[in-house]
Amino acid sequence: MKRTATNLFFLALPLLLGVIVVAILIVLVVPPNTTLGDVLQAFWNGAFRNLRRFSGVLVFWIPLTLVGIGLVITFRAGLWNIGVEGQMTLGGLFAAGLAFMLGEGSPLVIIPLCIFGAMLGGALWASVAAFLKVRFGVSEIFSGVALNAIANQITLQLIAGPWKPGDSDKAQYSRPVPDAARLLGVSQDFNVSVVGLVVTIVAVVLVLLVLARTRWGLNLKAVGKNPRSALLLGVPTTITAFSALMVCGALAGIAGSQRILFTYGDVRGQFAGGIGFLGLLVVLLISARGVWVPLIAFLFAIMLNGGTQLQFLNLDSSLTGVLQGALVLAVLLANGLRDRLRKPKQAKG
């Protein structure tokens, strides 16, 4: 009994510390006549005041969860897939490109095609990083940063060129995606795409099952912990690393398509909106334990949506970003602290 209690304590310690740090931060920055309670109230209002606000949370939750669960795969394989933002972007672009190409038609055909195209685009972009990694030993971190920048450039070129709305040369957005490819909300108030919701939930369940129950999931873990030993144990290490990046890219691609086909309805600069990077934070926060992705992504979505309410307290909404960063840092610190406190299990010799 005592052991379970200690384990629980050690499990909760990082989160507890994270919350305390965030609370202190808030108290430090709020104006004199507002309280911690006011800020929490603002977050709550931003997320749950009514159905419309709540659907805002979900709209954000969908791509963040997709990216997060994809990143769990690459983290498992010991890869830091910084390029996930670019993979989202390429996914979105492929979806948009297909939508423009196919024009009007039955959504039942066009939407699945677009989502499939998005997976392909994300996976292709990830495979560039994967190829550089396994063939030339280029760190996926560096190639990822470069590929993110290139993905942005491609977006801007497409908006300024083939996809520009009219004759204008200085467009901020592309022309709108054809209606047949648009994902629609359930209702005016509950403006959330059912397709997006279902795809996300299915993806989470599938990834969790695959990680826990398949040889591939076990291979990922082996490669992530020790590729040299994994090779000797019969794991195809190159294919495993390659496929981990591709699958993550495909999931990020779907996330990107949500931004185009649902959120914006057109292509615009930086449409991935940093969700890929946020996904990295989510996965860092939970040390790549997949089951927690939906919950933590939900918390992040609440914080982001609630952040929009902070202006009424004379606070800048970018405070949200600061809080999220502080939370992750605090939790990582506490993780390290926990590992030092907990007596290390040592081999006897």
Binding site: L218, N219, K221, A222, K225, N226, R228, S229, A230, L232, L233, G234, V235
Partner: peptide, 16 residues
């Protein structure tokens, strides 16, 4: 370094 994988259980190894 080469053969076993720290962080994996005995069962994980056998399964691999």
């Amino acid at each position: 370094e080469e053969g076993l994988i720290a962080g994996l259980t005995l069962t994980d190894h056998i399964a691999l």
